[in-house]
Nucleic acid binder design. Structure first.
Length: 459
DNA sequence: TCGTATT
């Protein structure tokens, strides 16, 4: 019964909509009549992704905003499948393709919903095929073929929105082009008929007609190229320098942790030991660089390291012989990412969660904000830092509620910034003191309080 | 360079 309230206007039914197919259908009467109980959608309708939605808004709240642009076929707020938590985004399909286009141009990056820092996102969902399903890459053209020739070739298949021959700086054709059709069907027809169908004058092989790369594919391709280049360089001396820098950072990191913890407890060492998982391989190679690194205090950052015990430096680079407590079996420190903290730290640094020492590790980590003053913005993170490393880095300063490194969706590469939230402001301040300015390679971490939500905004 | 979320 939760579905479609019969009869009268008020749809008030707070029914557990599974996506709230906006069967708004104006008139109440649900299924029985042959009427349009469920609105039809165009065959070429576009499913839109809507991002930057305040977590407090559900489908009912959003509906009015989007209905301005046409009848909604379906609107679904994304929720975490386990927790049911609002993920801050939604899928939206209009009955008419045109409505989607209008909504996108009117709303995308144009309007910021209450409580959000950034403007709403309204764009074709990633699942919408390739997003650029109307755009073709054409290869194996003759060098002498220009836009007009290419147009003539593709004209029979539909409306050409765009036609570009790729050229070198000197103007000569690269023998390929992009052709964008008005619809996916037209593009597909062209592929069917033209791909491999003939060999153009001066081309070495038959005509290539395929969908153009998506952004993601382009990004991946670039990444592969870069990886290839790195591979080629690998035997060269360059990497050692890089390792040295990174090693330096880790060493300084140790110092920072030590200083912050204000004590020789095994906590910091344990945390660093965990870090070492990631650099053990480098460490061996870079070992000779260590003493220098150890003797130079991290400028601007955590300040001096009064008594950085020599054993620590040495210890760090004998990855399998941590000296934390002299126990031979202490390599267990390496395998339980988050656990060392509660037991090992002085109470001042182990605020709350001591009662459940081992539990923090497995939580789904839905990103959350802590209270005001507890949320840090961190910039200049090492490229290789992920959420886990971020947690490790800040765990020594208190209970980390969440840690998130931003990642480029297309490449999966870190954007080198992220957030860490503690459950109390003191931990956040301690972390800032210890880690802001902390040098890694040529860069220094920037660690500061996250901007409050309403900053940057008139009212 | 300020919470990124794609069923």
């Amino acid at each position: 019964m939760a579905a479609a309230p019969g009869g009268s206007a008020p749809p008030a039914g707070p029914g557990p909509r599974l996506g709230f197919s906006t069967a708004d259908s104006g008139v109440g009467m649900s299924g029985l009549n042959p009427g349009p109980a469920v609105p039809m959608k165009d065959h070429d309708a576009i499913k839109l992704f809507v991002g930057q939605i305040p977590r407090g808004l559900d489908e009912q709240d959003l509906k009015p905003l989007f209905e301005e642009f046409g009848r909604i076929y379906e609107l679904t707020v994304l929720k975490d499948r386990l927790t049911g938590l609002h993920k801050g985004c939604a899928f939206l399909t209009y009955c008419a393709r045109d409505s989607a286009l209008k909504a996108q141009s009117a709303l995308h990056e144009q309007k910021t919903l209450p409580g959000m820092n950034r403007p709403i996102q309204v764009k074709p969902a990633a699942s919408e095929g390739r997003g650029e399903d109307r755009k073709l890459f054409v290869g194996m053209l003759g060098k002498q073929q220009g836009e007009e020739d290419v147009r003539r070739l593709f004209q029979p298949f539909g409306h050409i929105e765009e036609c570009t021959v790729l050229r070198s700086p000197d103007g000569t054709s690269k023998g390929c082009a992009f052709v964008k059709f008005g619809s996916q069907g037209e593009a597909q027809a062209a592929i069917q008929s033209l791909h491999g169908s003939r060999t153009m004058a001066g081309a070495s092989s038959s005509l290539v007609v395929k969908l153009a790369d998506t952004d993601r594919e382009r990004a991946l391709r670039r990444m592969q190229q870069m990886a290839g280049q790195l591979g080629a360089f690998h035997p060269a001396p360059l990497p050692l320098g890089a390792c040295g820098a990174y090693t330096t950072a880790i060493l300084q990191h140790q110092a920072a942790l030590l200083a912050a913890a204000q004590g020789p407890g095994l906590g910091p060492v344990a945390a660093v030991a965990a870090q070492m998982q990631h650099v053990a391989a480098f460490s061996l190679v870079a070992a000779p660089l260590l003493p220098a690194a150890a003797s130079s205090p991290p400028g601007g950052g955590p300040g001096s390291l009064p008594g950085l015990p020599a054993p620590i430096g040495v210890n760090g680079f004998g990855p399998l012989t941590p000296q934390t407590n002299g126990q031979p079996g202490s390599d267990t420190l390496y395998n339980n990412g988050l656990s060392p903290y509660p037991a090992a730290y002085p109470s001042a640094y182990a605020p709350v969660s001591t009662a459940f020492p081992q539990q923090s590790s497995a939580l789904p980590q839905q990103q959350r904000e802590g209270p005001e003053g507890c949320n840090l913005f961190i910039y200049h993170l090492p490229q290789e830092f992920g959420d886990a490393e971020l947690i490790q880095t800040f765990l020594p300063f208190g209970a980390v509620v969440s840690a998130k490194v931003f990642v480029d969706r297309a490449t999966n590469q870190s954007k080198c910034f992220g957030f860490v939230s503690f459950d109390n402001p003191t931990s956040a301040q301690t972390a800032i003191q210890a880690m802001n300015g902390f040098q890694i390679g040529m860069k220094r971490l920037k660690v500061q309080l996250k901007r409050p939500k309403d900053a940057n905004r008139p009212y």
